[in-house]
């Protein structure tokens, strides 16, 4: 067991973890942040995407011990049901989700992408999300959702909580 400390969604969290536990499982099982989902556990589906020190990573491909001392943002940290972020709101308004299982990873990825590229084209959105598999929507409504969030971002700069 190793004690690690992370700043998760703005809160300091210290937790004892086994060295071989993945970050995803520590977030889900030790910190109760079950919004981060495991869809493949081999780094392809993107459902487990979170931000570590401002970069999107697969939390199934990172050991929790490696996240010691980092700042982690999960989908829970981007908004809550009463204060949804523009991307979360976009997904709801454009029906960018059906079962919702892949959605957290897509929202984290899209949020990061819009920070880097606030005015993307449809194809840029499609390429930016190509590492996140969704089996329900066919992607079109997801692209609409991200573009809607980009439009919202133009109106008012998003304020990550």
């Amino acid at each position: 067991m190793t004690e690690i400390s992370m700043r998760v969604n703005g809160e300091n969290r210290t937790v004892n973890v086994e060295d071989y536990w993945l970050l995803a499982d520590v977030l889900r099982e030790k910190l109760g942040l079950t919004g981060t989902h495991l869809g493949c556990e081999h780094g392809v589906c993107g459902a487990c995407s979170v931000m570590v020190d401002g970069e999107v990573v697969r939390s199934c491909l990172m050991l929790a011990v490696q996240a010691d001392g980092t700042e982690v943002t999960t989908v829970e940290g981007l908004g809550d049901p009463d204060h949804m972020s523009p991307v979360q709101e976009g997904f709801m308004q454009e029906h960018g989700l059906q079962c919702g299982f892949c959605t957290p990873g897509l929202i984290v990825t899209a949020t990061h992408f819009l920070k880097e590229n606030p005015h993307p084209t449809r194809q840029e959105v499609r390429e930016a999300l190509s590492g996140n598999i969704c089996r329900c929507t066919g992607y079109q409504h997801i692209v609409n959702a991200v573009l809607r969030a980009a439009d919202e971002g133009e109106k008012k700069a998003p304020s990550p909580r």
Partner: peptide
């Protein structure tokens, strides 16, 4: 190479 989440690490 892969996707940005892969390239970042």
């Amino acid at each position: 190479i892969g996707h940005e989440a892969i390239r970042a690490r």
